[in-house]
Amino acid sequence: MINDALKNLARFLLLILAQGLIIKNIDLGTYINPFPYVLFMLLLPFNTPSWLVLMLGFMTGLSVDMFYNTVGVNAAACTFLAFSRHFILQLLAPREGYESTMEPGVYSMGWPWFVSYAGILILLHHIFLFYLEVLRFKEFFHTLATVVLSSLATLLLVVIIQFLFMKPKTKSS
């Protein structure tokens, strides 16, 4: 349990720093702004209490806001993600239910499940984020393009990060 908390704390710090110091400085034009820090929210274990998920969402978003000078925008989007996560998990639940101490990652849940789970949540998060940031109806389609392209980039990064830094669990354990 404590081990789990430490692991998540380390993940939180690494992802926020990576987002604020590295990803933010990679310039891929106005249409592609990936936010892979949401991986922290995606990977919280299934048995995390729902109020804690909400609070963590808010804090994670606010920490990223500090780097991006967008006070509250990421916090709002990330809280929304934490809220939706609850329902998406219910929606995608396998028949036999979740193993409660597991994390919802690529290796534990398999490809199709993770891509739909992460895809939906990332899209929701990005829609909320970019429309809140722009807040102008005139630029609707430009923002839509940003949302779609950035979501794809984030999804790709989220999968790559798991491939690079997480070990698949061997079947015997």
Binding site: L54, M55, G57, F58, L62, T70, G72, A75, F80
Partner: peptide, 10 residues
Amino acid sequence: LLEFFALYLV
């Protein structure tokens, strides 16, 4: 509560 606080900050 959290959402409105965030929007208030925005």
